[in-house]
Amino acid sequence: MRQSHLAVLNFMPAIEITNLRKQYNGLVAVDSLNLKINEGEIFGLLGPNGAGKTTTLMMLTTLIKPTSGTAAINGFDIVKNPSEVRKSIGMVFQDPSSDEILTGYENLKLHGMLYGMDGKLREKRIEEILKLVNLEDRKNDFVKKYSGGMRRRLELGRGLIHHPKILFLDEPTLGLDPQARENIWQYVEKLTKEEKITIIITTHYMEEAEKLCDRLAIIDKGKIVALGSPKELKEVIGGDIVTLKIRNPNINGLENLNFIKKIEIKGDILSLVVMNANINLPRILKIAGEVESVEVKSGTLEEVFLKYTGREIKENASGGRWSEKVIQYKSKK
C-alpha cells in the first residue's frame, strides 16, 4: 500500500526497461533495450518479423528470463518479483490461446480462477466483460464455433477480467479480415477511454500503429532505432515528398522557403522534402521554374520504417498465421 502511494507521487512510469537483453545460443534477439512507457499510454512496438518484439514481450510478462538487464512493470521487477508483475498484467497472445473445447463463458471462468477471483466477483466481471466485447449471446457456445474475430474478442476480454494495470497485445489483429480488425481497434480505443490502462501493442501493420498508438518504437534486430509519436516519426522524414520535373530550376529561391527541408537534384528531376505540401505547393510552383510535371507523396510510417531499417515492412510476411494455427488446432484431435 505504502509503496504504491509513494510511487504515484514519483510519477512512476507503467514500464521502465533498463538494458534489457536476451541472447539465444550467441544470437542476440533483444539488444540492450532502454525504454520508459507512461501510464495510460498506448505504446506500439513496430518491427519486421524476428525483430525481437515478441521476445521483449515474453520477458516483460515473465514468461522468459532476460540474459541481462531488467524491467519494472507497475513498479515490480520482472526478475525479482515475477508474481507481482503477473498480477499487474494481462496479455492477448499472438496465437489462439483459448480452449475451444470450452465455451466462451468457461474460458473466462477458468481465467478468473487462475487469478484467484472468488465466485461472486468472478461472475460479475465475466458479465461485464461479455458485454464489453459483445459476446453475451454467444457465451454458452463452444469456442470452436466462434469466428476468428470473435475468438480474438474473447481473448481480449479475458485479458482484462482481472483488471490489469497493463495490457500486452501481441499482434492482436494478425490474420483477421479488415472488418474484424477495425472491430478490435474499436474495442482497444474504447478500453483506454473507459478504463485507466496502459496498453503495449506489437504489430507490423503500419495502419494499426498509426491509428492506435500514442507513441511508437521502431525495433530492428533487437534494437530501438526510432522512438516517438507517429506524427513525430513522420516529421523525421521531414514532411511530404514533392518530385518535380523541371527546367532551369530556381534553386536559390527554393532554398529561401523555410518550409522546404531538403533539396536533391538529379538531372532535371528535383526532389523536395516539404512540410505540409498540400498548403505550400502553390508557392513552390510559383517560383520553382518551368515545371513540366509534379508528384506529391505524403510521408507515411512506411517511409519512416524504410529509412531506419533499410527494409520495407512486409505486411503479409506471416499473414494468416493465427488462423493457420486455429486450423492446426482444430485438426489435432
Partner: peptide
C-alpha cells in the same frame, strides 16, 4: 505439448499461479 502448440499454456503460465 498441444497446450504449448497453441498459446493456451502461456495463458496459464502468465497467471499469478506458481
Amino acid at each position: 505439448v498441444w497446450d504449448k502448440k497453441i498459446d493456451f499454456l502461456k495463458e496459464v503460465l502468465i497467471a499469478p499461479v506458481s
